[in-house]
Amino acid sequence: HAATELTPEQAAALKPYDRIVITGRFNAIGDAVSAVSRRADEEGAASFYVVDTSEFGNSGNWRVVADVYKA
């Protein structure tokens, strides 16, 4: 099962156990969220919340930071 994305309210009520950072070329924010979901799932997380997204220069590469939560 894939890790689910939390709302800001849900994330605020929970304590993350880790923070992950992924970088890559994403065509849309949805693609980045899917990549975070896969990584969170690999780490055994039940859910995640994207904290920050930023573009690296003009290369089209993105850096996505997310907190991950157990259950």
Rank of each mutant, 00 (worst) to 15 (best):
A66R: 00
I20H: 00
Y69K: 04
R19V: 04
S37C: 09
N27T: 12
D41R: 15
G60D: 07
P8W: 14
D41F: 15
A71W: 13
F26Y: 07
V51E: 01
R39K: 12
T23V: 13
N61H: 12
Y49R: 05
V21C: 11
I29F: 11
A12M: 11
L6T: 01
R25N: 11
L14V: 06
T4Q: 12
A40D: 02
K15E: 11
S54D: 07
G60H: 06
R39D: 02
S47A: 14
A35T: 04
S37H: 08
V21Y: 08
A12F: 06
D18G: 15
F48Q: 01
S59R: 07
V68T: 02
E9L: 10
V68K: 02
E9T: 09
A28Q: 11
L6E: 01
D18K: 15
L14Y: 07
S59Y: 07
A66C: 07
D52L: 13
G30D: 13
E5K: 08
G44V: 01
S34F: 07
E5H: 10
V51D: 01
A12N: 11
A2F: 14
P8R: 14
V36Y: 00
A45T: 02
S54P: 03
K15V: 14
A32W: 10
D52H: 13
R38A: 09
D52S: 15
Q10H: 05
L6R: 01
A12Y: 07
T23W: 09
Q10N: 04
V68G: 00
Y49L: 10
V50H: 01
A13L: 14
D52V: 12
E42Y: 10
V36C: 07
I29W: 14
T7W: 04
L6I: 05
R63P: 02
V50N: 01
D52F: 13
Q10V: 06
V36H: 00
G24C: 07
F48C: 05
E9Y: 07
G44N: 05
A13N: 12
V21D: 01
D67M: 10
G30M: 11
I22G: 00
A45D: 02
F48A: 00
A45Y: 15
G30C: 12
V21H: 05
F26H: 01
T7F: 06
R39N: 04
A46R: 08
A2M: 12
A66I: 13
I29T: 06
D41C: 15
Y49G: 01
V50I: 15
A66T: 01
D18C: 14
R19E: 00
